[in-house]
Nucleic acid binder design. Structure first.
Length: 346
DNA sequence: AGCGTCACGGTTGAC
DNA sequence: GGGTCAACCGTGACG
């Protein structure tokens, strides 16, 4: 059950333990950093722990994505149907083939790479469990018919198992690679950034005031429900969407966040309470309700149609990427080593 | 004072 | 349907 209320950190900010910060806040962190605001100031202003700010910025710097990683789930199976299909084909072609030979062939044929090739024992298990019957059947059939595997049966098999790349198919939940949060090209953020605008603009103070009436803040900044879906949503929306999906980042996630906002009792959840006063650089925590923690700006301008300047001009729609790398002194070597693959994809 | 790092307690989702 | 496990999360504290 989602907690209706988050906890309050030392800075007076609200967070939900175990859950990512709202997209809007994450985005704001990156924005502010891009504007040259020091992480410590970002931390205080958004009332997010500096460790978190550091982590988000480091991740952004490394991957180009502000999105959190995929939470939950299991490692990707290496014995995908495609792999099984190939193993089966090898076995059919050469019933005496060894598991290690199959493994080599999977690599040689490009079915797998060194990172996802099944172990010999896995292959043996596949041979035993999934292909054993077929082999026996083939043997049985071959005893009745000339000893070559029926092309037809192979076709049938392919018909059953053929499935295109999970990524290229719509497979929304098909993992790109669990643990890989967001391939920047897909998820994140285009490498363009709004033209220069003032801090107050980007903080959206005026925008909040002006637009608050029309667009409930709570619609935007609440916690995401399924972060993992963001990626697929981004994938599907990113290129096609010509509306102001906030930077490719995330109109859809924001829409999902709306769901998250709705607590069981109808009360606003963590980040939905916002106040303009909370935009003050260092509002005294005692003054501010914990539920005002997440400043309005990010949420509200995220909620509006595109990143609207106070002037009303809409910022570039795919603007979540920054034009230049953030001025980091170092890139955090996170424990999430798997992300380096993503980073290298940049 | 600012920042990187990591233990901790928590959530999530595939298996 | 529920348990397990391994991924992730942000906080808070330490250096």
């Amino acid at each position: 059950m989602e907690p209706a209320f988050g906890e309050v950190n030392q800075l007076g900010g609200v967070f939900v333990n175990g859950r990512p910060l709202p997209n809007a806040i994450r985005l704001r962190i990156v924005e502010l950093a891009q504007l040259g605001i020091r992480p410590c100031d970002i931390s205080r202003q958004l009332r997010v722990s500096h460790g978190c700010v550091s982590k988000i910025l480091a991740r952004y710097n490394e991957t180009g994505s502000i999105l959190p990683g995929a939470i939950g789930g299991s490692k990707p199976r290496v014995t995908t149907p495609t792999v099984v299909k190939h193993i089966r084909a090898y076995k059919q072609r050469d019933p005496g083939i060894f598991a290690w030979e199959i493994r080599d062939r999977l690599l040689a044929d490009g079915v797998c790479d060194k990172y996802n090739v099944p172990s010999v024992s896995s292959i043996s298990r596949i041979l035993r469990n999934k292909i054993g019957n077929l082999s026996q059947q083939n043997n049985y059939e071959s005893s009745k018919t000339p000893a070559h595997p029926s092309p037809q049966s192979a076709l049938q098999y392919n018909a059953i198992y053929s499935y295109s790349s999970p990524i290229t198919t719509a497979g929304a939940k098909m993992p790109t690679s669990p643990g890989v949060p967001a391939i920047p090209g897909h998820v994140g953020i285009h490498r363009t950034w709004p033209s220069s605008h003032s801090v107050s603009d980007i903080l959206g103070i005026r925008a909040i005031i002006e637009q608050q009436g029309a667009i409930p803040i709570s619609d935007s900044s609440s916690y995401p429900t399924k972060v993992e879906e963001w990626n697929s949503i981004n994938r599907s929306h990113f290129q096609s969407s010509n509306q102001a999906a906030v930077n490719g980042l995330d109109k859809s996630p924001l829409e999902q966040e709306v769901k998250y906002t709705q607590g069981p009792n109808g009360l606003p959840t963590a980040s939905s309470f916002v106040s303009v006063p909370s935009m003050a650089p260092y509002p005294p925590p005692t003054q501010v309700s914990p539920y005002m923690t997440y400043s309005a700006a990010a949420s509200s301008y995220m909620a509006t149609h595109g990143w609207q300047h106070a002037s009303g001009s809409t910022l570039p729609t795919h603007s979540c990427d920054l034009p230049t790398p953030l001025p980091f002194k170092s890139v955090q070597a996170t424990r999430e080593g798997s992300h380096s693959i993503v980073a290298s994809a940049l």
